[in-house]
Design a protein around this nucleic acid. Structure first.
Lengths: 305, 305
DNA sequence: CTGTTAGCGCCTTCAT
DNA sequence: ATGAAGGCGCTAACAG
């Protein structure tokens, strides 16, 4: 079996506490003693038991990261940003997929946090519902931060970007290209970000004296398929739009697929703009114009004090 | 702070051992006593401390999953398959990104396994190098399994699919469409899978009496960009291919991008076939023909006995 | 600078 | 069916 601190102590001819001191560089230790300890560590290939350490230290040095689905490309940059920061801070990460299932998410939060499996939790881009679970957690002093999600309660720190401004950029880009009939594909309107992007779209058009036509607003849910379906619907309009702004890149890619299947081309027949700047957006042809979000920078958090 | 088993015991008026018994349903407990314990558990919102439990049980009920990059779309189905199986078995998963960095991977393996953070490790699609670390681990009785990677040593279980047969399917599909000038984009040839797909390509052409032309074989590394570059190279040939088979979907998507940028179209000017059937493959336009791998089914493992 | 002592929270014999 | 006692591997006072 794996060597324990006891084995190291015996081999080095010191007590367990001394080994612990050497390992953790807590207080001063005689250099020679330290050398003997390190030799023993090496010889026995000793690695401190994570559970034992966590138990006595009352912390795991692990942060949970809950996203809807780690494999969703949207999270790539956020995750990488969090990862880089965690590495630098010597913290481990534990990923949890909620799959947007409320009950499931609550269960994850409970088992992870209450079982003291993690020291804190970063919740990325979740649903507006079930604030209660998060508030409960925060009330118990657990570190929770939210990324890409608004939360009115000040007890929970949030990192969000200015979605309205982003939407304005997108619409103005299309206006600048001469488009006047600009369609919009919404995200899942249960999310604050989706609501804000829609508002940004409307306000920008209004600001330019362009009437908002309901038929040009199609409803999606941030998933690829919904962008595809929404675009098909928009293309079926008596007078189809000359441009479309999708609330995220995955839906924009879906929209491009629908446009292609209709025998039309991008951007000649219909211009497409997405949102998020996920890596995949630059991998398709024709390349997708998109609004960059500082996803990588948004992930990292500040520890609560 | 969080309630402990002691608090529950006190509130229920029993000993800690009884609480433990009730929680783990090990031996028989008086139904009434059990009820009182459960009530106390609920009232105190008690959750067993993961570290303490792991320490005494000498297992964490957690399996590590090491992939090059969780956010790489290739892993999506594999990860989901593993996840489903783990959930069913009541096991937790801990994901590790190796980023294909050998030293980094070794470090991950060591810290995870040797720190007893996980009970076993699933290594997905890794490099052929550094067999030693894995063998060391296996020799110590740690459960390790490999997915989508061959490993000659029988001490380590592997799950792999028949890459040669898959490549044959792809090439025969193109031959069936009347193509004779079929190019091939290799994967990273440090991987067994890449080698096998190349062999399958060559053997199939040879089997149909078509000479293998070196200029039609472009070298990639499984990444999107390399597919794009390889295709640009193939398109620059005096006599360009009428079809291309890329060793995975990401490179095929990159190839499609290069074809589009060259003002050509798929499949009219150049037919493209990929490999893996990642979710993305069906999201682009024109839709990508691909060889399906049973990725979802390949992830789950059998526990070693 | 180092060893002794006392737990962290839980499970598991061994008694009863 | 239940309690008492011991220990998993480690760290953190407290002495010396």
């Amino acid at each position: 079996m794996a060597a324990t601190i006891k084995d190291v102590a015996r081999l080095a001819g010191v007590s367990r506490s001394t080994v612990s001191r050497v390992l953790n560089a807590k207080s001063e230790v005689d250099p020679e003693t330290a050398t003997r300890v390190w030799q023993a560590v090496k010889e026995l290939d000793y690695h401190p038991n994570t559970s034992a350490r966590a138990l006595v230290r009352q912390r795991t040095d692990t942060i949970g990261v809950m996203v809807a689905d780690v494999t969703n490309p949207f999270y790539e940059k956020i995750i990488k940003g969090i990862e880089a920061t965690a590495n630098a801070a010597g913290l481990n990460l534990a990923f949890y997929n909620s799959y947007e299932d409320l009950a499931g998410r609550r269960k994850i939060i409970l088992s992870a946090l209450e079982g003291s499996r993690v020291d804190g939790l970063i919740v990325v881009g979740s649903h507006l519902g079930d604030k209660s679970t998060l508030l409960e957690m925060a009330a118990r002093g657990l570190a929770i931060s939210l990324v890409e999600r608004n939360f009115a309660d000040p007890s929970i720190p949030c990192v969000v970007s200015d979605n309205k401004a982003g939407a304005r950029l997108a619409v103005e880009h299309l206006l600048g290209l001469g488009h006047r009939r600009i369609a919009f594909i919404t995200g899942n309107l249960h999310y604050q970000t989706a609501i804000e992007r829609l508002e940004g779209y409307k306000e920008t058009l209004a600001g330019h004296g362009i009437p908002i036509e309901d038929e040009l607003i199609a409803f999606g849910d941030f998933e690829h398929k919904s962008g595809y379906e929404a675009m098909k619907q928009l293309l079926a309009l008596p007078q189809r739009p000359t441009a479309v702004f999708a609330s995220n890149d995955m839906m924009a890619i879906g929209a491009m697929q629908a446009i292609g299947e209709a025998g039309l081309n991008v951007p000649g027949d219909v211009a497409v703009v997405g949102y998020d700047d996920i890596t995949f957006a630059s991998m398709v042809y024709p390349q997708l114009t998109t609004i960059r979000q500082p996803l990588y920078e948004m992930g990292p958090w500040r520890r609560r004090v």
